[in-house]
């Protein structure tokens, strides 16, 4: 086999995996491992993540509990493994909704311009006028804590970056020659937008979404840490850190292990973003 080829999305970009770079492979490797861990959690986790064991509270890493236990005697390793499910879900949903909304709004604004552009751009200005986390907290506080509220808040606040990216791309591309050629073939505006502009414009957003996943992950952990996201006793890395912080001087493993998990997952996304950007020639 010369160069393995895969087809991404309907637009049919071909990524020649022979031409990728080290960050790309590293990022894909790290993410791949975490996805496997999340998928196989029931199989590979040695203990029930919420099972409390009063006889083994705050025990340091040992053969019995590889990464030790927390103040309720729950196995840290098992909690980190099960937490991967929640945190990956946060990354995926926390990115997808803003991505979709932002692409839709940005596409309309960029393509049609005029009053639509003005309206959406002012709306974006309003959202941007508030600090990101403050706005998120306000929305979650209104909706009540929980992951659903977190996704909704993410979607309401996070779409602006995607909208601005796509709008900028559309503004440039809508005057491109191949778009003129598409119009000369009789295609209407919707077809030109969806079939010809979008596949050309979206690469930058895809790369950005990977680095955005890092921010979403950290936000998700922060929100859970503040008690507004995932609720205990569910295993989630942010909560684990929050719960362990009062023991940080005596039992470092309770916070350190989920901390490393967050860092490694974030690094995976970040490396993948770099590698993809390099491969597809996208400049952020």
């Amino acid at each position: 086999m010369k160069a393995a080829r895969s087809t991404l999305a309907r637009g049919g970009w071909r990524l020649s995996f022979g031409g990728g770079s080290l960050p790309l492979y590293l990022g894909m490797g790290i993410l791949g491992i975490w996805f496997l861990v999340a998928l196989l959690a029931p199989v590979i986790a040695p203990y029930d993540p919420i099972l409390q064991d009063a006889t083994a509270r705050i025990s340091p890493p040992s053969l019995e509990h590889l990464f030790g236990t927390d103040n309720f005697g729950r196995d840290i390793l098992s909690r980190v493994i099960w937490g991967a499910r929640v945190d990956l879900q946060i990354c995926v949903f926390g990115v997808i909704f803003p991505f979709l909304i932002g692409t839709f709004v940005g596409g309309l604004a960029g393509f049609f311009g005029g009053w639509m552009d003005n309206l959406f751009m002012r709306l974006i200005d309003i959202v941007l006028a508030f600090p990101f986390l403050v706005l998120m907290l306000a929305i979650i506080a209104i909706l009540g804590p929980g992951l659903g509220s977190f996704y909704l808040a993410m979607a309401l606040v996070g779409w602006v970056s995607y909208a601005r990216l796509i709008r900028a791309q559309f503004l440039v591309l809508k005057n491109a020659d191949f778009v003129q050629a598409a119009v000369s073939l009789g295609y209407g505006p919707i077809r030109v937008m969806v079939r010809h502009l979008l596949p050309n414009a979206i690469l930058g957003s895809v790369v950005f979404s990977m680095s955005d996943a890092v921010l979403v992950l950290l936000n998700g952990a922060a929100i859970s840490y503040l008690g507004l996201g995932v609720q205990p006793p569910t295993a989630e890395w942010g909560i684990m850190i929050a719960e362990g912080q009062s023991f940080i001087s005596t039992a470092w493993w309770i916070t350190a292990v989920p901390g490393f998990a967050i860092v490694s997952l974030a690094m995976g996304f970040s490396l993948l973003a770099d590698g993809l950007g390099e491969l597809l020639g996208v400049k952020e």
Partner: peptide, 23 residues
């Protein structure tokens, strides 16, 4: 829209920029 492409086709000076690069 029927006329464009269906009755009257058009080709341009620069084929490189007038073909959709990702299709």
């Amino acid at each position: 829209r029927r006329l464009r492409g269906g009755t009257i086709g058009m080709i341009f000076q620069n084929p490189t920029s007038h073909l959709d690069p990702v299709m």
